[in-house]
């Protein structure tokens, strides 16, 4: 605490914020189109599905778990929706089916971790790859067209001048915020990572909390999967490869850590912004797609390194190991 006051206010600003500011400055210079309203809307639209998945991943990480299946779940959901549409089901049923599939995958993750006792990342990687496999088998590895107007409206439509996907992300985020900070569920999530024994002692069924957390993460991945299907107008098992990395990166850059349930979904917004601005800026600046892959990995990892360093100085906690 003392160290914190000594270091002064400005040094408490996490490095992620500096990097966002720096990126904006650079992009403003390099790419004239960056600071236009339409482009900023673009950033927000790109951020929308990522924010939705990342919030789910954040809750899982708060419980000292991990979810590597979200990218696969998103792909599967886009496939399920497209196939249900193709089979002639109404769009609402199709979307419900997709959400159900995602939620089910999430719950399976939870059962594997909390009841069966598998290490979280083996469990989620295993379930995720099975979800991917199901997606592949259902589509024979092909992309399935899904040009339903309601589905497309999620990306193209707007309400009161605001793009639908932004509204959807904001709504999802709002609901999650209520869940996390206004109800016992959120307190359970934070306690499960912080001190599960304390939670057990007051009579909470920690296993159920854990299963539910993975379920929520799966459900949110499913919502994001709908947005991806809507944007591409298709269902494809590999549509969201690598999204898990972005989501985990956004969570950690934001300041949620794997220890003691520290952090929160509010912080993840910052991480999501960083990644989305980075990606959009690279596009606007005309950097070729091929360079983006490695560059984004580099920036995300670099920010995390800075962030770990930053927290070590602020907390002055250079203990033995």
């Amino acid at each position: 605490m003392q160290v914190k006051t000594l270091l002064g206010q400005w040094r408490q600003i996490p490095p992620a914020i500096w990097i966002v500011v720096l990126m904006c400055l650079i992009y403003g210079k390099v790419a004239p189109g960056f600071f236009t309203l339409s482009n900023l809307t673009n950033v927000a639209m790109q951020a929308a599905p990522l924010l939705i998945v990342a919030v789910g991943v954040t809750t899982v990480i708060l419980t000292e778990g991990i979810d590597l299946s979200v990218g696969f779940i998103m792909g599967l959901v886009s496939v399920v929706v497209s196939l249900l549409l193709k089979a002639g089901l109404g769009i609402w049923w199709a979307m419900l089916g997709g959400l159900g599939a995602g939620f089910l995958c999430g719950l399976t993750n939870g059962v594997m971790v909390a009841s069966v006792g598998l290490p979280p990342f083996i469990a989620t990687l295993g379930v995720g790859s099975m979800a991917y496999g199901v997606g592949l088998v259902l589509t024979e590895g092909q992309s399935i067209q899904a040009l339903d107007p309601v589905l497309l409206f999620l990306t193209n439509g707007s309400l009161a001048g605001v793009n639908m996907s932004i509204i959807l992300a904001a709504a999802v985020f709002g609901i999650c915020w209520l869940l996390m900070y206004e109800t016992a569920f959120g307190r359970n999530v934070i306690s499960l990572g912080g001190n599960p024994e304390a939670l057990r002692v007051v009579g909470v069924n920690t296993r159920r909390v854990s299963i539910l957390v993975y379920g929520v993460s799966g459900l949110l991945a499913a919502v994001a999967g709908l947005l991806v299907a809507s944007r591409t107008g298709s269902g494809y098992a590999a549509a969201a490869m690598g999204w898990d990395f972005d989501a985990i990166g956004a969570t950690i850059i934001g300041g949620t850590s794997f220890e003691e349930g520290k952090g929160g979904i509010g912080k993840t917004v910052l991480g999501v912004l960083l990644i989305s601005i980075l990606r959009n800026g690279l596009n606007v600046a005309g950097v070729h797609n091929m360079y983006q892959f490695a560059l984004i990995g580099l920036v995300v990892l670099g920010t995390i390194v800075l962030d770990v360093r930053f927290r070590q100085t602020v907390e002055g906690g250079l203990k033995a190991q």
Binding site: R187, I190, S191, G194, N195, E197, A198, L199, V201, E260, G261, K262, G263
Partner: peptide, 9 residues
């Protein structure tokens, strides 16, 4: 004897 509080609550 053990710490029974949740650190970040």
């Amino acid at each position: 004897q053990e710490f029974m509080l949740v650190p970040w609550l």
